[in-house]
Design a binder for these strands. Structure first.
Lengths: 231, 231
DNA sequence: CCTGGCTCTCAGGCTGCTCTAAGGTTTGAC
DNA sequence: GTCAAACCTTAGAGCAGCCTGAGAGCCAGG
């Protein structure tokens, strides 16, 4: 660790900024702060931080919009801070582009732990969404939004593609219906979680997959679904 | 990656150079900079860069003139940085010779993406930079900013050409409306993103393209648009 | 100052996807 | 074997997302 890690903390409440700053600097990290959304974007552009700790509730443009703008030029890890606990599962929605989230009030030690975990995570070399990932006979190209099965193109709807992409992003990992709703449908979806079943059914049909003996998407009874790892 | 890619960045504003340098070096590219037109030509001659990022507004001789002089001895990829306020006609006439362009203010991230796209693009016939790229019946000449459909010239407005050029730059890749706005209009554009639809509609009409059965620009529902790859 | 061309906003119409609801099927416990 | 819970499937109404046309503003050139 030669170059110090730079962290940008964004919150409109000064005490929270001070608290965060204290804990992060104790880790040997360099901390810059911003009190509004616009300021945050400017500073992010100027100082190119490695990590951004971002409150969602901000005066002016909100945290999600700040995130979008920062994402336009930076691959920094972003941790969202939200105060409404009922939204917490949903805030994690990767659709928003965040890497992690915390619910306020949070413990500063938890924040430090999360940042450490992020920094440990290998970065897929700067915004370079790999061409196409191959999973057995299934090739998935994120940038083209195309899927081919044994070389034959499969036509998926937007939701089906997003669902598949989400599952494929971490093969072998079980996603609950709620997690899938949060990440694919977004944080503000309301409705029956078994909607996932419907789209998964359509997806399986198009992939020629059988629910009782799946090659691609396995059902984990009582838990959710997972994409099969290549054997 | 045997020999590092060399990039020459030209701008009279020091902060912008620093920003660009930071992002490009993070890609593992070697960056040299110039702050004026004359300096740019000299350095280009001395260091033989693979890519030149060139601001149009320069003290002394402007970017167009720099481009002309560099073209005299180099076929490096050239990306022009234009500002939205500049007269479109002027740009239409003078960008001839550039391989790509970005509208200021741009996000450094976009710049990296554009350079990557250029480097991925196979150089057609050394020393004789491509006359026009051919996509089915559509010939697009970036340098003359002209388009012909089955040999017949098509008259496009500046925006229409820019939009087409952006889509064509990476055939098959899906661009979201937001991405197109960021890259063609600049990141400070405010307004409804469906503005893209309008210009795309005009573009399609001029290309004789049908939205429901497109030969050139496909709609990817819920995601954006993409230029069809040659089958 | 007028004219023409381009950009952008707005609203209506259409297509096809999404979601709901209900019934059928499988799984696992007893 | 029986039952309930969990899961899968189907079908259709509603609506989101997309396309297009019309027109108001804006700028450049005459």
């Amino acid at each position: 660790m030669t170059v110090p890690i730079r962290v940008l903390a964004v919150d409109d409440e000064e005490p929270i900024l001070a608290l965060v700053r204290g804990y992060l600097e104790r880790e040997g990290w360099q901390v810059v702060t911003a009190a509004s959304g616009l300021e945050a974007v400017e500073i992010a552009q100027a100082s190119a931080p490695d990590v951004v700790v971002l409150d969602v509730m901000l005066p002016g443009i909100d945290g999600f919009e700040v995130l979008r703008r920062i994402r336009a030029f930076s691959d920094a890890y972003v941790i969202l801070l939200t105060s409404r606990s009922e939204e917490m599962d949903r805030i994690v929605g990767l659709t928003a582009g965040a890497d992690d989230y915390l619910v306020k009030p949070f413990s500063p030690r938890e924040l430090v732990a999360r940042i450490r975990a992020l920094l440990r995570r290998p970065r897929t070399s700067m915004g370079d969404p790999q061409e196409a990932t191959l999973h057995g006979e299934l090739a998935i190209d994120q940038r083209r939004r195309t899927v081919t099965l044994r070389g034959v193109p499969v036509t998926l709807t937007g939701t089906e593609f997003n669902l598949l992409a989400m599952l494929v992003s971490e093969p072998g990992i079980v996603f609950s219906r709620q997690q899938l709703l949060d990440r694919v449908w977004g944080i503000d979806f309301v409705g029956d979680e078994h909607l996932v079943d419907v789209h998964l059914g359509n997806l399986r049909r198009k992939l020629g997959d059988d629910a009782t003996d799946p090659r691609f998407v396995e059902t984990v009874r009582g838990a959710g679904f997972r994409f099969r790892e290549d054997p």
